[in-house]
Design a protein around this nucleic acid. Structure first.
Length: 141
DNA sequence: TAGGCCATCTGGTCCT
DNA sequence: AGGACCAGATGGCCTA
């Protein structure tokens, strides 16, 4: 566990004034806050898992240091654009090999797992939705 | 020691 | 009402 806010800890007890509400209401809101904190923690862990998955498929060029989240996103963007360009060029210059290119079903979101080399990973849905988002963004650009 | 990166908490907003 | 998502604040850890 990393840092905690000193005054408003996991209990959430010091952030509001117990006297201003009935003890029961106070307890309810405290319990809700704790549950919300736990959900948020879990959500962020899922997000980090997705970032780890992304780091695995993005080129690092021998960098021993782990890419930051921002760097990972930048790298993913560059990587996708580069692959896209390669594919476009290949399609343009090698019509006879069209069949070979078309065989890359991995370009479909449903088949990302075969690109990534595993069948199912936690947070995969998040990655898929991100790719959908990217595609939509490109369509509207 | 400063700056970058990160985890966590929190309150607000939107959606179901 | 409650959950998901988001952005801001805060403090810890690490490196140059």
């Amino acid at each position: 566990m990393k840092s905690r806010r000193s005054s408003c800890s996991d209990s959430g007890s010091e952030c509001s004034e117990p006297d201003s509400k009935s003890p029961q209401k106070f307890e309810t809101s405290t319990r809700r806050r704790m549950a919300a904190n736990a959900r948020e923690r879990k959500r962020m862990q899922g997000l980090n898992t997705a970032f780890d998955c992304l780091r695995k498929v993005v080129p690092q060029w021998g960098q021993d240091k782990k890419l930051s989240k921002y760097e990972t996103l930048q790298m993913a963007l560059s990587y996708i654009m580069a692959l896209n360009r390669i594919l476009t060029e290949a399609q343009r210059h090698s019509a006879p090999h069209r069949q070979w290119i078309d065989s890359f079903d991995c370009a479909q979101p449903d088949a990302y797992s075969c690109l990534m080399g595993y069948d199912s990973v936690p947070g995969q849905e998040y990655i898929h939705s991100s790719f959908y988002h990217l595609e939509e963004h490109q369509l509207h650009a």
